[in-house]
Amino acid sequence: MNPVLQLDSIVKRFGSRTILDTVSMTVNAGEIVCFVGPSGTGKSTLLRCVNGLEQIQGGQISFEGTAVLPRSIGAVRKRVGMIFQHFNLYPHLTALQNVMLAPMVVHKEAKKTVEERARALFEKVRLSHRINAYPSQLSGGEQQRVAIARALCAQPHLLMFDEPTSALDPETVGDVLGVMRDLAKEGRTMLVVTHEIRFAADVGTRMVFMDQGKIVEDGDPRAMIAAPKTERARQFLSSIHG
């Protein structure tokens, strides 16, 4: 096995509130881990600790063998792509410029190389025709696919999605999930916070159920959906199944 990410009893507090309570887990290359759980249990916070958007108060995170610390965070961020619920595209840049910014500025790659790669990525997310549009001219689903292309263009070793379809109109959710399925087939390592149980069952290789800052259950998605081991997971899964 080849661990990409290791969380070793990490603790995250906001003031006196403990949001992540000694969470440990190991993510291996090629795994697609889907995080589920009630609102406010720390799923987003967990992802944000991995790339240093939040600082942890205890434990250790290591990414590809090196500890995630304030001083090494730049190197980690170069290899971790993040996709946000609200896309967070740069409004003053075109779709293409959004995708090209970090590779050129952070990775110092030549413009020509980056542009070639970016165009190929737009093909992949099926948006070649919108390459020169500004974010305000794109639908939510289109914006999220640009955001995925933006993350991919930096050639990350790990992709993190925080509820990528929660802010989308129902009819555009499918496009984004379609792109994510393609990425899964390529054998990428992905962490996905989602309420899309169908997606987790079809695409996920692993499902993590969190509640109140702890990992309550961790296992095969289909098995967990069919027969949750804990009462809390059973209640939660039946509530979102409808």
Binding site: N51, G52, L53, G74, R77, K78, V80, M82, F84, H86, N88, L89, Y90, L101, A102, V105, V106, R150, A154
Partner: peptide, 20 residues
């Protein structure tokens, strides 16, 4: 979210200011 996206992409504080 603009600051977050820029930081997540590894832009330094100065680069975040300059480009975003």
């Amino acid at each position: 979210g603009q600051f977050e996206a820029a930081h997540a992409q590894g832009l330094t504080a100065l680069q975040t200011f300059r480009y975003v």
